[in-house]
Amino acid sequence: MKCQRCQENEATVHYTQVLNGQKTEIHLCEQCAEQEGYMDFSNDNMSIHQLLTSMFPFDQNVNQQQSVSPKHQLACDRCGTTYQQFRKRGKFGCSNCYHAFEAYLNPIFRRVHSGNTKHVGKIPKRVGGNLHKQRELEQLQAKLQQLINDEAFEDAAQVRDQIRKLKEELQENQDGDA
């Protein structure tokens, strides 16, 4: 099998990524896997410490090329943690750090969570109904796609109606908020 990214080398790294309830298989060569920010957990009983030190594998690279990149002057405006401190410790200083460093977080999350960057689990009640519905909508859309692939059109029609209803509800709520 050829690497999906460069279409040249043999794919030696295989991931199953689950996003919004949808499973995707990813096949890459080693170089592309590294560049894309994936990491292989296999054959390795990794401690949290090892995990942290492997979170930022391109440090050297970055330091050599652009020692005064804007990334390095970045700091959280609430707790004062700088991006460099975050990189060194592997720990955020407060919840706002997630927003302050947002532009650089996807590769890190991909690395430590098997390719995932988006939360699909529990939502606090206070966050309200719309996010719950949004989540439900995403799941239904994935289900619809699956049913269509399986040519289960009767079931698909039902799911399509559910989606329509949910979208209307979401629309109403949004109009209400405005």
């Binding site: 927003h99 999350f109 969570h113 939360h119 009640k125």
Partner: peptide, 30 residues
């Protein structure tokens, strides 16, 4: 968790889920 949540506003983000000190726990924190 729900019981605590009645009184405490936990750090949460739509995309990253429950926000934790270490990126290895973010999302569900589970």
């Amino acid at each position: 968790d729900d019981w605590f949540e009645e009184k405490i506003r936990f750090a949460f983000d739509e995309n990253r889920g429950y926000l934790t000190s270490c990126p290895t726990n973010a999302g569900t924190g589970l």
